[in-house]
Computed example of a mutant assay.
Amino acid sequence: MTNKLLHTPEGVRDLYNGKCLQKITLDQKILSVFQSYGYRPIQTPTFEFFDVFSSDVGTTPSKDLYKFFDREGNTLVLRPDITPGIARAVSKYFKEQSTVRLCYSGNVFINNTSYQGRLKESTQLGAEYIGEKSVESDGEMITMVVDSLKKAGLHDFQISVGHSDLFEGLIEESGLSDEMDRVKHLIMNKNFYGLQDYLTEKCIAPDLQKIFMTLNAFFDTPSQWEDIMVLAESYPRIYATLKYLKELDEVLRLYQVTDYIHYEFGLLTTHKYYTGIIFQGYSFGSGEPIVKGGRYDKLMRYFEKDAPAIGFAIELDQLMLALQRQGNDTVPFAKKITVLYRKERRQEAIQKAMEQRIEGVTVELVLVDSASDFEKKKLQFSDSEVLDLYS
Rank of each mutant, 00 (worst) to 15 (best):
G131L: 02
T241Q: 05
G311H: 08
Q43Y: 08
F94H: 08
R325F: 04
D317A: 13
L245K: 07
R346G: 02
Y390E: 01
L76N: 12
R342C: 09
E344T: 01
V108L: 06
H163E: 08
I187C: 08
F109Q: 02
E359R: 15
Q97Y: 12
E128L: 12
K4Y: 11
L199D: 03
L176T: 05
S382V: 12
K202M: 06
S62D: 05
G293M: 05
N189V: 04
S32C: 11
Q347P: 02
Y39Q: 01
L242F: 15
K292N: 08
N17V: 10
N74C: 07
L21G: 06
Q35G: 01
T362Q: 10
Y198H: 08
G281W: 01
P9D: 15
Y16M: 04
S234Q: 05
P41D: 14
H185N: 10
G11P: 05
T44L: 05
D329E: 07
V339M: 03
L316A: 00
E48F: 09
R295Q: 15
Q97F: 02
L78D: 07
K202Y: 14
A307Y: 12
L252T: 00
V251H: 14
S234D: 07
I290P: 10
R13A: 14
S54M: 06
Y390Q: 01
A87I: 03
L254Q: 15
Y341F: 12
Y274E: 06
K150P: 06
V146S: 09
K377Y: 01
G281Q: 06
K150F: 06
A371Q: 09
P45W: 03
I350M: 13
L170N: 15
M229N: 12
E304T: 11
Q380E: 12
A322G: 15
F53H: 05
Q124H: 14
P236H: 07
Q35K: 15
L21M: 13
L248A: 10
V33T: 06
T258P: 08
D369C: 04
K133D: 13
V230M: 12
F218E: 10
K272F: 01
H185Q: 08
E375K: 03
S177T: 09
Y129E: 00
A307N: 11
S174P: 09
I337N: 05
F49T: 04
E226F: 14
G85I: 01
G153Q: 12
S372M: 05
S122E: 00
F381G: 01
V366W: 04
F192G: 13
F109R: 02
F312E: 04
G85W: 00
E128Y: 11
A349N: 01
S62L: 00
G11F: 13
L149F: 04
D306T: 12
V52A: 15
L65C: 06
A87L: 03
G311M: 15
V363C: 00
Q351A: 15
E226Y: 07
T275K: 09
H262E: 13
